[in-house]
């Protein structure tokens, strides 16, 4: 039955090559912890992606309750935290996941760096990876404001004041992020929400796609 469904789809869209590109590749001995336990260092990249998937899923569920305006943002988070079934767990996963993703990303970066895996021909993938690092730091910065508690508000104010000190374009950056030259308020929350939920994830998906396609084309770096 499943085979018939597969054949029916395959006849129309020739799915086998796509399926081959995604799933059919080799795992060399030196990256396989089943053969060499020290190869667990090669898991960090995959675990980073795993936590990113957790972040995407938990974030999608959080937006079902979260209200991005200054009157209700904190109340909606409080309600989610105290009243909604499993709300505390979903928010906890998103909150702690943000830290775990940074830790995993750092470990992955250090593995690639100390193994010199970014050397020719993998320079471009290293650059994409560092851009991913910046994107995820940006997601951390913009996500911090969204609960709209004191910690969020004052940390964001400090961050925006630092951005303002950038020469020439500092004021423009601050206005772009906070929506006003002076006030950190309703506009800021709306902007940070849009950046956190739409702009940065769009960049994240594009960069992740390139990162993975490049790995598949070049193969994983060989043993030292």
């Amino acid at each position: 039955m499943l085979q018939k469904i597969y054949d029916w789809i395959d006849e129309r869209i020739d799915i086998t090559p796509i399926w081959r590109d995604i799933a059919d590749h080799e795992v060399p001995e030196h990256v396989n912890p089943a053969h060499h336990f020290s190869a667990f260092v090669y898991c960090f990249g995959g675990l980073t992606f795993f936590v990113v998937v957790i972040q995407i899923l938990s974030g999608m569920f959080l937006t079902m309750y979260y209200v991005p305006d200054i009157e209700n943002a904190w109340r909606s988070v409080y309600y989610l935290q105290t009243e909604v079934a499993h709300g505390q767990i979903v928010r906890g996963m998103h909150h702690w996941g943000a830290s775990v993703v940074i830790v995993m990303l750092l470990l992955h970066t250090l593995r690639v760096f100390f193994q010199g895996a970014y050397k020719k021909p993998r320079e471009l993938n290293w650059i994409v990876g560092v851009l991913l690092f910046f994107t995820i730091l940006g997601l951390g910065f913009t996500g911090y404001l969204l609960p709209w508690d004191n910690k969020a508000y004052f940390a964001t104010e400090v961050g925006l004041n630092i951005a303002q000190d950038v020469p020439i374009i500092g004021d423009e950056i601050k206005t772009l992020l906070s929506g006003d030259e002076e006030i950190v308020g309703a506009q800021t929350l709306a902007r940070f929400f849009a950046i956190h939920v739409f702009f940065l994830p769009a960049g994240l998906f594009a960069l992740l796609g390139v990162h993975f396609i490049l790995i598949r084309r070049q193969g994983i770096s060989g043993p030292l």
Binding site: W74, Y78, Q81, H95, W96, L137, Y144, W148, F154, V184
Partner: peptide
């Protein structure tokens, strides 16, 4: 460890010492 949540943001709360998330 449930995710922490502080008081609702109060821009007039003088004396609040801001701290970024640990990775900043």
């Amino acid at each position: 460890h449930p995710a922490p949540l502080e008081k609702m943001a109060d821009p007039t709360a003088a004396g609040y010492i801001p701290l970024p998330d640990w990775y900043f």
